[in-house]
Computed example of a mutant assay.
Amino acid sequence: MEKGTLIEFRLHSDRHLAVAERPEGKKHWIVTDQRGQSHTIHPRQITYEVSGQLYRPADLSKFWQQVQPYLDPAALEVAWELLVEAGEIVTPTSLALLLFSAQDPPLLYAAHVLLADDKLYFKQKGEGYEPRSAVQVAELKHQLEMEQQRQQEWQEFLALIRQQLQRQQGLSAATPLPPSCHQLMALCPTWRSSVLVLSLWSGLLPWEKKRHTAPQL
């Protein structure tokens, strides 16, 4: 790696773009992100190096703007359909050529982000990504749909709880749910437990009402 290399690294599991500034000791590098903050990182933290040209920290914002139009997960599904039969390993370089018919640095990085963030169509294998089988993709899609359904049911259940609060305690829609509500809901993972929650909760309502009602003068 040399000064001016644009890299992606992980900090507390979050993705960051930065430009390499100088070596630090035998193994580490000083890098600068787009906010001008310096980080000392180990090569193990680097998840991608953008090849093709050198950059300055001031270039990072423009670079990211060039990347964003290509971050369409639907494009990854098209690539998977083309590659799944042959089971061909794909890399950011080959994916950029397949999807965008070019290998400019922003396109290479966009291909990397698509593959790295994907949990459905490809799985990492060595330095590349292997297309999942049609059966695996169908099962993952089913799991995703079920999770979305559970989330929707959970939101409906929260709305039911809030309506109960509004009727019995006169709380506004913007009032956060009281702590006892969250504690009880943690025991009831779906809306189907709502009857049990509300019946248990009825004994707590007077106490909660004291917490949320203005004192009488």
Rank of each mutant, 00 (worst) to 15 (best):
W154G: 13
S101G: 04
C181Q: 10
G170E: 09
F100K: 03
L204D: 04
Q143N: 08
S193K: 10
E21N: 14
S51R: 06
Q65N: 08
G126N: 01
C181A: 15
R10G: 05
Q148D: 10
A174E: 15
K125P: 10
L76N: 00
R22V: 02
L98Y: 00
T40H: 04
L95I: 03
F63L: 05
E130L: 12
G52K: 01
Y70P: 10
A173W: 02
E145K: 01
D72W: 10
L160P: 00
S38K: 14
P178D: 12
R211Y: 06
P179K: 07
E147S: 06
A186N: 14
F122H: 00
A18M: 13
T91N: 06
K27G: 15
L200S: 12
Y48Q: 05
H212I: 04
W64A: 09
H112C: 03
L76H: 00
L204V: 12
K119H: 08
L177W: 00
K26E: 15
E49C: 09
V90R: 01
L97Q: 13
A111D: 00
L144Y: 06
A173Q: 10
A102S: 07
T93G: 10
D14Y: 15
W201D: 02
H212A: 03
P179R: 06
Q163L: 14
P92T: 00
G25D: 06
E127R: 06
L97R: 09
G36I: 10
R167V: 14
V84F: 10
R150D: 03
W207M: 14
G87A: 07
R150Y: 02
V137F: 01
V197R: 11
L204I: 11
A20W: 08
L82C: 07
W201M: 13
R44D: 06
R211A: 15
C181W: 11
Q45I: 02
E85H: 11
S51P: 05
S38Q: 14
A86I: 04
L165Y: 00
Y70G: 11
R10P: 03
A102L: 02
L99V: 02
Y70Q: 08
E127D: 09
W191H: 10
S194I: 15
K125E: 14
S38T: 09
I89Y: 03
L165W: 02
S199I: 11
R192V: 12
R10W: 08
Q152S: 12
C188G: 15
Q148K: 10
L165F: 02
L95F: 03
P57M: 08
I30M: 15
G128F: 00
L204E: 03
L60A: 07
W154N: 14
L60V: 05
G52F: 01
K210E: 12
H42V: 06
P176R: 11
M185I: 08
W154I: 00
V67Q: 07
R211T: 11
